[in-house]
């Protein structure tokens, strides 16, 4: 699905991403973990075209997509969400969602004046889809609310909803669960799993909540200091000495030892 080869990003002398090579298998939910400043979000930015890489390549289904602008990647089915939820604050939730599908009839300037019936027919379909998405995410009571007034967690749901408005192939989720309460987190987790199963979305998600990762992700990739540290199932990662040292800390290891000894 996605193949990253020798990707580097240098900010001056600082190597934020330092030679990352990894693969994301189609149909998987890949977790990306690592300490703060490990280069996870920068890696997302490089893959999603928000930043140009210093060197290296990104392939999607065998095609070189390195450095393509984000809107081109969007039309290829590569979507992402932001760590700090973004929204069009002055528009309603529904308008936010209806804006998403690209290449709409109404985007052509002549159609605005002469093709109004065609636009209306198309928008009817998009509106229905937006309503479905809002129902799926249990935010349908907020449909006319200004997006800027939503709570942090609701904005995260809106971010997820945005990716559901089109048939995405792969979605990069940047800390979709951060700052979200437990119930909402379960809703988001369920939504991700359903999308993965029913609509065969591939996901790659940055997350710090190890329980959340453990429930959803296989495989898990751990990054530190711009490099891939380890890759494997959640159990393998948790038991990996490098990962424990760089990220999880010995506290977890001790706890795990205690748990295993008590069993």
């Amino acid at each position: 699905m996605i193949r990253v080869e020798g990707l580097h990003k240098h900010f001056g002398g600082f190597h934020a991403v330092d030679g990352v090579t990894l693969k994301i298998a189609p149909g998987s939910i890949t977790g990306l973990i690592g300490p703060n400043g490990a280069g996870k979000t920068t890696l997302f930015n490089l893959i999603a075209g928000t930043l140009p890489p210093t060197s290296g390549h990104v392939f999607m289904n065998g095609e070189d997509i390195t450095g393509l602008p984000p809107h081109d990647l969007f039309h290829k089915g590569l979507l992402r969400t932001f760590q700090i939820a973004h929204e069009f604050a002055s528009m309603s939730v529904r308008e936010n969602l209806m804006l998403v599908p690209g290449h709409q009839q109404g985007e052509r300037i002549w159609n605005t004046w002469i093709g109004r019936r065609r636009i209306a027919a198309e928008e009817e379909g998009i509106r229905k889809k937006a309503d479905e998405v809002m129902e799926f995410l249990t935010i349908d009571h907020l449909k006319d609310e200004r997006a800027g007034n939503l709570s942090g967690g609701q904005k995260k749901l809106l971010e997820l909803g945005r990716t559901m408005m089109v048939d995405a192939q792969i979605v990069f989720l940047d800390e979709v669960g951060a700052g979200v309460n437990r119930t909402l987190l379960r809703t988001i987790g369920d939504a991700i799993q359903r999308l993965n199963r029913e609509r065969s979305y591939t996901f790659c998600m940055i997350e710090h909540d190890m329980d959340f990762i453990g429930r959803l992700c296989d495989p898990v990739i751990c990054m530190a200091e711009g490099k891939v540290l380890a890759e494997g199932t959640i159990e393998q990662i948790k038991a990996n000495d490098h990962v424990i040292e760089a990220y999880l800390g010995t506290g977890l290891k001790n706890r795990m030892i205690k748990e295993t000894s008590s069993e």
């Binding site: 602008p69 809107h71 992402r80 604050a89 985007e107």
Partner: peptide
């Protein structure tokens, strides 16, 4: 308006700049 509001998000919503 979306582009004016949040350029990054507009691009990632598939809007052609």
């Amino acid at each position: 308006r979306a582009f004016s509001d949040n350029e990054d998000l507009a691009l990632l919503s598939g809007i052609n700049p």
